[in-house]
Design a protein around this nucleic acid. Structure first.
Lengths: 295, 295
DNA sequence: TGATTATGATAGACATAGTCTATGAATATA
DNA sequence: TATATTCATAGACTATGTCTATCATAATCA
């Protein structure tokens, strides 16, 4: 059987005439005749009652036609939705980012993308790098804003922004006297860290060369917001990404902020996606859009 | 596009692997690859995200698959219902008969057909010859039991029964004295007739050579049952088909019944159907079944 | 790192399906 | 009886689908 055969049947039922039905299908009368005969032979049933004045569907022919209409409707819907979706900037776009980026960047990204790609339906998901990477690999995400380069060749990434790092400390802390901090200036026993799993924690640990027993186990929390509050309360010092400042998160009277000056004291934000993704064009456009927010 | 292509897409989404999907479709891997690629090109959309480890549907691919499933379901249903219907003694059988036959024959016919063809769904319709003929011609009926030969070459008929005619009169009527009536014996001014449109009325009129003003206008009624009641009440005489007697309709103490002996004093019942009907086999079997009831 | 394995794409030959024009058979119409 | 109309059939041609063989790419493992 064949989709075309079904349209032939539909045309015949409409015109009740082989010649006219064929014309409406833009084929010759024998073509339509032969194909419908083949379909009847194939199904082992007479679908059409042939007369010299009118071709009529048999009862079973009518039942087949009803189902044929259903099938043709579905096929038509396929053509419709694919025609709409052939615009690469349409459909669902599922992206994620890590918790140390999202609060400072994602709201703006959502607004900007929504404005630039009105036909794109945005779905956002926050999680740690490991989970986002899984979601990327199994196809649940189209892209993710990460601060670490992909560990598998199956993922690619576009650089977005090289973000400076800031040291925050309570007002009046010894560090306030120094100008231009480097990691070794920091009193490690006062460092408040994010909990395990956050890549920003790993980066801080690497940067400051913190050994496993160097710092207090208690001072690890699950969000930058908590860290900032703790620092403000005089409970210690920490390192935060510079984007936090842009959003006014650090504009608090009891917090001192200083740039961390050191080679590698930045983090590289990038947009990561599957190498096999067929949505390269869209992903590139999205990355441009995000970069425009970060100048 | 092609129904087969849709099954390829479905198989691929199930196996997430071109080779395995191809195997499940009993085709080679390149065949499936090429066909799906063609479908994508045709639709102008990437349906599949290809990797060396897993082939996955894109979001739009998933949407297309859902519709493909719908279409394939309908096609499957076509195969199912036609496979069932390939038995000629199944499906709906729509037949009719005229009011001067139905009450005496159709109940038995329904029972007999139901018993012999259990998979046949019977639909019965009573009407006058003219309407039934229309319904036959436009395909609303498969067959009809009529008492007149078809007037168009587009209809054929199978003879069922040559039915004698009976004269009925009130008990004690002059006719009771006679043995073996012929039409000219009948007092035409006492004849009760069916109303216009009934072929049995026409036959009676012909048979008795009744002129338009010969009989009383008031004595025309719409059913044989009414005629019998009127005769029983002494309001006149009439002619009825012999089948009426078989069913006991005439077994009333105040009615006399006599056979009408005359050439042409019978009516020919037959089963009429479209010459173009593809259900000849069934119709022949049905006529055999009815004839068996009429021996 | 280099060999091996797995995956999907591509090329070219071949077979099958579908389509066309021309024509025929059957029936209705004048 | 001649003419229309309608659908079926035949034979040539074309498009489409399918195969085998092979290639390119990437993952895996010694």
């Amino acid at each position: 059987m064949n989709i075309r055969d079904l349209t032939y049947l539909r045309a015949l039922s409409r015109h009740k005439h082989f010649g006219k039905a064929a014309e409406s299908c833009n084929v010759s009368q024998p073509t339509l005749s032969v194909q419908l005969k083949k379909m009847e032979d194939d199904l082992g049933v007479t679908l059409i009652e042939r007369t010299n004045r009118a071709a009529r569907l048999t009862p079973i022919g009518e039942n087949v036609l009803a189902l044929a209409d259903e099938a043709l409707g579905a096929v038509d819907a396929i053509r419709t939705i694919t025609a709409e979706a052939s615009d690469p900037f349409s459909g669902h776009f599922r992206f994620g980012s890590i918790p140390t980026i999202s609060p400072f960047l994602v709201p703006d990204v959502l607004v900007a993308l929504g404005r630039t790609f009105p036909k794109l339906q945005l779905v956002f998901r926050e999680n740690i790098t490991e989970r986002l990477t899984e979601d990327l690999l199994n196809g649940d995400l189209d892209a993710a804003i990460l601060a670490t380069p992909p560990e598998t060749p199956r993922l690619l990434s576009i650089p977005l922004y090289n973000e400076p790092l800031l040291v925050i400390h309570p007002l009046g802390h010894d560090l306030a006297a120094l100008d231009g901090l480097i990691p070794s200036d920091l009193p490690l026993d006062q460092m408040i860290l994010l909990s395990e799993g956050h890549c920003f924690r790993d980066q801080t640990v690497d940067l400051c060369n913190i050994q496993s027993r160097t710092t207090l186990a208690e001072t690890s929390v699950t969000s930058l917001e908590t860290i900032i509050s703790l620092v403000e309360a005089g409970q210690g010092i920490s390192i935060v990404p510079a984007l936090a400042q842009g959003k006014g998160w650090l504009d608090r009277p009891r917090i001192g902020v200083q740039l961390l000056r050191s080679q590698g004291a930045t983090r590289q934000l990038n947009l990561t996606f599957r190498k096999s993704s067929p949505r390269r064009k869209l992903i590139k456009a999205v990355s441009d859009e995000i970069m425009a927010l970060l100048v």
